[in-house]
């Protein structure tokens, strides 16, 4: 799907976009966020065995949010099972009480909104696309493996997927998350053209 140079450029573009995401996340939780160097994998589909291989078979929480505009697709974010608890704790919410589960879900969805917004907006800005619109983020699964989470969530036939493996870690906490970006084929061609233009200009 992508050449090595195109993947290198996209990886750097996502790196910059995720840096902005980390900055927003850090402001939300008032804690320094440690960013890893992103790795990008081109996948044939969400069912690509590489995905489970990369993300393992430990239980996760998965959220999703779609985007439309010059770029069309969907981002799925995988959080560690303790991610919501860690966030709630960082933000001073009690882990007990009837509202605890609702608060944790809201936090995970807030973080999804921040990261997907930063990722797709960052991609759009750097490749000179107009802004995308976003759906409301939703919870996909909780307490299942990646394979189970995606079992009934096949990509549309005209889509391709990019796995952006980037870890957001919070020092002294177990919080981490990874992003799966699914881009519609029609948008892939647009991205490839824009990346080639960027590469040509350097």
């Amino acid at each position: 799907m992508f050449t090595r140079d195109q993947l290198d450029a996209l990886q750097e573009i996502f790196n910059i976009a995720m840096g902005q995401g980390a900055n927003r996340l850090a402001r939300l939780i008032e804690t320094f966020v440690v960013l890893s160097a992103p790795k990008l994998y081109s996948l044939k589909s969400q069912a690509d065995p590489e995905l489970s291989k990369r993300l393992g078979d430990t239980p996760i929480i998965a959220t999703r949010q779609s985007f439309v505009g010059p770029l069309r697709g969907e981002v799925v974010i995988f959080f560690g099972m303790n991610g919501a608890n860690e966030l709630a704790e960082l933000m001073g919410y009690s882990q007990d009480g009837g509202d605890a589960q609702r608060i944790k879900e809201e936090l995970i969805l807030d973080v999804t909104n921040i990261l997907v917004g930063a990722c797709i907006t960052g991609l759009s800005q750097q490749l000179n696309f107009t802004k995308s619109s976003f759906s409301t983020p939703g919870l996909l699964v909780e307490g299942k493996t990646v394979a189970e989470a995606l079992e009934n969530q096949r990509l549309p036939q005209d889509s391709e997927a990019l796995l952006v493996e980037i870890q957001f870690k919070i020092e002294a906490h177990a919080f981490f998350c990874e992003l799966l970006i699914c881009i519609a084929n029609e948008s892939i061609a647009t991205v490839v053209t824009a990346v080639d233009k960027l590469l040509k200009g350097v």
Binding site: N15, A17, G19, Q20, A22, N23, A26, F32, L35
Partner: peptide, 9 residues
Amino acid sequence: ISADIQPEA
């Protein structure tokens, strides 16, 4: 030169 633009970074 970094993408990590957090003030603390």
